[in-house]
Amino acid sequence: MSNPDTLTNSKTAQGPLVEARGLSHERDGRTVMAIGDWQLQPGAHALLLGPSGSGKTTFINIVTGLLTPSHGAISVAGEVMSALPPVARDGLRRRTIGLVFQTLRLIPALSVTDNLALAQQLALGHVDRAAIAGMIDRVGLSHRAAARPRQLSQGEGQRAAIARALITRPRLVVADEPTSALDDANAARMIDLMFDVADATGATLLVATHDGRIAPRFANRLNLMAPVAA
């Protein structure tokens, strides 16, 4: 059990980007996620590795403020996410976190460019066309900028999804199972691209996966154990 006040005191640019203190979560009286104390330092891309059901998504949802942990606290960029009211959580998430979903979740009715513009509008309140063009160029999609998501190949869709997560210049990029549905080549390319774009924009990656193939790519790993059968 940690005191949220000690966490707020560590609100400095050099402090950890994500900090968990005595963090665990119970569902129906069963502990579904137990991480305890853990820190993610800026720039130290981390992999959250564990079998299915080990609580990775639960942890991600707590980090992004969609779920309130039953024990402990989590802070993001120096603010105690788990202690904030919903509207403030939305604000903190909007300002500091970019998300890459396993099923991409690009808006099918909008072009790649407009998907990025919408994300920018929602997160920053304005649209920077030059930055969007630059980002699309960086992920190698310039020739597909006007295409709709359903016209993209799987690889192109991933690039677009990464571009959208990073166009808001978040300090933290969270990805839940970004490679689980991909073949080896695509999985490797996805991780390459995420490292590349994150380093270029100064973002730190937090990737949750059960996919052992990408484990060697991360120096910073947090292993979760399979839940004990009840």
Partner: peptide, 16 residues
């Protein structure tokens, strides 16, 4: 529904 949830997560308010 998925789009909507995603929009909420990336910063759209309920009112929006």
């Amino acid at each position: 529904e998925g789009d909507m949830a995603m929009l909420r997560v990336i910063g759209a308010s309920r009112a929006a």
